[in-house]
Simulated assay, not measured.
Amino acid sequence: MSPAKQPARLVLATRNIHKVGELRAILGRAGLRVELLGTDAFPDVPDVRETGVTFAENALLKAHAMARACGLPAIADDSGLCVDVLGGAPGIFSARWAGRHGNDRENLELLLAQLEDIEPPHRGAHFLCAAALALPDGTERVVEGRLRGTLRRKPVGGGGFGYDPILEPEGHSRTCAELSAEEKNAISHRGQAFRALVPVVRELLDA
């Protein structure tokens, strides 16, 4: 009898344990034999500057950097909010729309002020996530997920983060910040992108 095949090792370029858990669960439900690690397993790997001009470029930058640094296949994602009337902005600048990276309250207040005179029929927007898988040999794949909705005039809900309190997904009467974690994961842009990675992981890692 031949020995059992060992699970493929794969790294997700993030220090967010919840994001690692989300992808691990998706890969597991798909029946893939993969050992998924986060960036914390490689404490000497530095963070990567996101110098790309699209979500896909930034995701690829991070995935390739992680694959080179640890010698394992690596996944990375990049995401943000794209507002129709703003031509897709904040886009890749979503986390620093107000000037300082990661200040959710100021980003939200600035965006709402910019949209103050925009009526509901023109407040369409979507969250977009690009997820990239890169191998140490340079092979790469990118997939995307998006969640369309309408922007509220005021934040509602205490869950989620970023712009979740103002995006009401299509087909829902609550904002993303009012959804439970399970409800949000089922429709989120990141969840869609991670699920779209399943056949890519199966193809490239023979998992």
Rank of each mutant, 00 (worst) to 15 (best):
R100A: 12
H101C: 07
G102W: 13
G102T: 05
N103M: 07
N103F: 09
D104E: 10
R105E: 14
R105G: 00
L108T: 03
L110P: 07
L110Q: 13
L112M: 09
L112N: 02
A113K: 14
A113C: 10
Q114E: 15
E116V: 12
I118M: 08
E119T: 14
P120R: 06
P120L: 00
P121Y: 10
P121D: 07
P121I: 03
H122K: 12
H122P: 05
R123S: 08
G124C: 12
G124S: 14
G124P: 03
F127N: 01
L128H: 02
L128M: 13
L128F: 06
C129G: 03
C129Q: 09
C129W: 04
A130C: 12
A130W: 00
L133Q: 01
L133F: 10
A134L: 08
L135W: 06
L135R: 01
P136V: 06
D137P: 04
G138L: 12
G138W: 11
T139C: 13
E140K: 05
E140A: 11
R141F: 03
R141L: 05
R141C: 12
V142M: 09
V142D: 02
V142L: 11
V143C: 05
V143A: 00
G145W: 04
G145S: 10
L147K: 01
L147N: 02
L147H: 02
R148K: 13
G149V: 07
G149S: 09
G149M: 05
T150I: 13
L151V: 07
L151H: 03
L151C: 03
R152A: 15
R153G: 13
K154M: 13
K154T: 15
V156M: 12
V156A: 14
G157A: 06
G157W: 10
G158I: 04
G158Y: 03
G158D: 12
G159T: 04
G159M: 06
G160M: 04
F161V: 03
F161Q: 01
G162A: 02
Y163P: 00
Y163G: 00
D164S: 01
L167Y: 08
P169F: 02
E170V: 15
E170S: 11
E170D: 15
G171E: 09
H172W: 15
H172K: 12
R174H: 12
R174Q: 14
R174D: 06
T175V: 10
T175A: 04
T175K: 00
T175F: 06
T175H: 06
A177S: 09
E178I: 06
S180L: 06
S180D: 13
E183Q: 13
K184G: 02
N185I: 02
A186H: 11
S188G: 10
H189G: 01
H189T: 08
